[in-house]
């Protein structure tokens, strides 16, 4: 605690039975749980794609250039996130703020792409939640992922703002790292969704 000013406060947080910080361990447990969460959603989508392969002309609906672009964006945001965590650990606040800002900016572009994609599907392609089973599973799966992205942006944005206040302390680097773990996880979920929801539709069996 505060009494040991001669030690690095980040190292103090590691003084647990296992040597892993409490918040980080809880976050990894949460991510394990989230694997099941998205696993169930992705299974629902894949099962109905498998049972009803021809329910919609999916290739006509999808716009792989846009999705490919937003995938790049999300991967880049993950790179910036890793740099923010690194900067936070170095206690280089200006660098951390720029990288966090960049992460949030790219996250917002990704969300913008998704909003555009959704309205394009609904208004131009007549794909809605209740137009077909494909619409139901697609929107709920990608929408849930989008909600995760939005929550991540909110979370990272909170730390960006907080870092400008004098309440930001050395040990908050851990909190930025934990928020970063969440952000990276949202990114890996998208890596899976991009492959199994979008790309495999383009394979001609």
């Amino acid at each position: 605690m505060s009494s040991h000013t001669d030690n690095d406060p980040l190292e103090e947080l590691k003084k647990t039975s296992t040597g892993v910080e409490n918040k980080k361990l809880a976050m990894w447990a949460f991510l394990a749980s989230d694997c099941m969460f998205f696993g169930t959603l992705i299974s629902t989508h894949l099962i109905y794609r498998k049972v009803y392969p021809d329910v919609e002309d999916v290739i006509d609906i999808f716009d792989i250039e846009l999705t490919g672009f937003s995938t790049f964006i999300l991967l880049m945001s993950s790179f910036l996130m890793a740099l923010s965590v690194s900067a936070a650990h170095k206690n280089n606040l200006p660098s951390m703020r720029w990288c966090l800002g960049g992460t949030i900016f790219f996250g917002l572009i990704f969300l913008g792409c998704q909003v555009y994609e959704f309205q394009h599907f609904v208004f131009d392609k007549d794909l809605t939640l209740s137009s077909s089973i494909f619409g139901s599973t697609f929107f709920v799966l990608t929408g849930t992922h989008g909600v995760h992205v939005a929550l991540g942006i909110f979370w990272l944005g909170s730390w960006l703002i907080y870092s400008f206040t004098d309440r930001y302390k050395r040990e908050n680097a851990l909190d930025v790292e934990v928020a970063g773990l969440y952000w990276h996880f949202v990114d890996v979920v998208w890596i899976i969704i991009f492959t199994v929801v979008y790309l495999v539709e383009y394979i001609e069996f």
């Binding site: 629902t44 009803y52 077909s132 089973i133 139901s136």
Partner: peptide, 27 residues
């Protein structure tokens, strides 16, 4: 998480007319 998702899907079926478990749309 499995029941959370199942309940979300059921809620969508009941409120927003999706077809997760609704036979009419192939659920």
């Amino acid at each position: 998480p499995a029941i959370t998702i199942a309940l979300v899907e059921l809620m969508f079926d009941r409120h927003f007319g999706t077809y997760f478990f609704n036979v009419d749309g192939g659920g």
